[in-house]
């Protein structure tokens, strides 16, 4: 019970920091708004001359075009804006006090990660709500099933994974500047985890093959493929591609957790 209260307190405080410092909130909001604006721009341009009842289909196609950009922006930016959560405690000199409290390293880490992830998810949800309202007003009803599938199986895992890995990877650092640097490196490396399909398309040259693999993400591609929205030049992913990607992402998250735990133990004698 005491541990739960401690985790809840750290999460609540992290949410306060996210709102007051603005980093994760602004980062996710900017990505969400940029992608929404791009989708609406394409949808409104493509809708000219089309009857209103076909707007949902048209905007879904436009969303399918924009979705890869959303994913890579989340993976590229969110680790960077999330990474300072723990190093800032050291930079402000609060860690000495935290270590004197009956608080274990695992609880501290969990609270920090959860707080950052919830801040990112809450901002994502708010941006999505704005998108849905604008869609209903400007374009009419949207394809609910497609959106739900993309949100639950594509956006949600990324919006949990990216801030968590950002916080964990930078957990041993002393300053915000170094944390942002490490977060940026994580952001650059993330597509290698989420984007590679491991099986180069046979009909493309190596460079184009690698580019094709990195420009699409297996999980969202499978969803788009099932809804008939995958662009014709993209090879449809297999279920084993999706499983491999998911397992790799989970393994990296686990490895980052162990790394962070070790960092806290070695640097600060947290127990």
């Amino acid at each position: 019970m005491k541990a739960l209260r401690q985790i809840a307190a750290i999460v609540r405080t992290e949410l306060r920091f996210a709102l007051r410092r603005g980093w994760p909130v602004v980062g996710v909001a900017v990505i969400g708004l940029a992608i929404s604006a791009a989708t609406f721009y394409l949808a409104l341009a493509n809708m000219e001359g089309l009857p209103r009842d076909s707007a949902a289909e048209s905007s879904a196609r436009d969303l399918a075009m924009v979705w890869p950009a959303f994913q890579w922006l989340v993976l590229g930016v969110v680790p960077m804006v999330s990474a300072p959560a723990i190093p800032l405690d050291r930079q402000f000199g609060v860690n000495e006090l935290l270590h004197s409290l009956p608080l274990t390293g695992a609880i501290y880490l969990l609270g920090k990660v959860l707080g950052t992830v919830i801040a990112v998810l809450a901002t994502g949800a708010a941006t999505l709500a704005l998108y849905v309202v604008l869609h209903l007003v400007l374009l009419g009803p949207l394809r609910t099933e497609l959106y739900l599938a993309l949100i639950l199986f594509s956006a949600l895992p990324l919006l949990v994974w990216a801030p968590a890995v950002g916080v964990l990877a930078a957990s041993g650092l002393q300053t915000r500047r170094r944390a942002v640097l490490v977060g940026t490196l994580v952001g650059f490396a993330s597509p290698l985890c989420w984007g590679l399909r491991f099986l180069p398309p046979a009909d493309l040259r190596p460079f184009e093959g690698a580019a094709a693999q990195l420009s699409h993400q297996p999980i969202s591609d499978l969803i788009l493929y099932r809804y008939g929205l995958l662009p014709p030049y993209t090879l449809p992913p297999t279920e084993s591609d999706v499983i491999r990607t998911s397992l790799l992402a989970l393994s990296i998250l686990l490895a980052a957790s162990l790394f962070a735990r070790l960092q806290l133990h070695l640097k600060e004698d947290f127990r």
């Binding site: 405080t13 306060r16 920091f17 007051r20 410092r21 402000f92 000199g93 609060v94 860690n95 000495e96 006090l97 004197s100 409290l101 009956p102 608080l103």
Partner: peptide, 16 residues
């Protein structure tokens, strides 16, 4: 630590 009150020499606080 459960029964301790500690004031470090260099105390940092959360400015926010």
């Amino acid at each position: 630590k459960s029964v301790l009150g500690y004031l470090p020499q260099e105390l940092g606080l959360y400015p926010d």
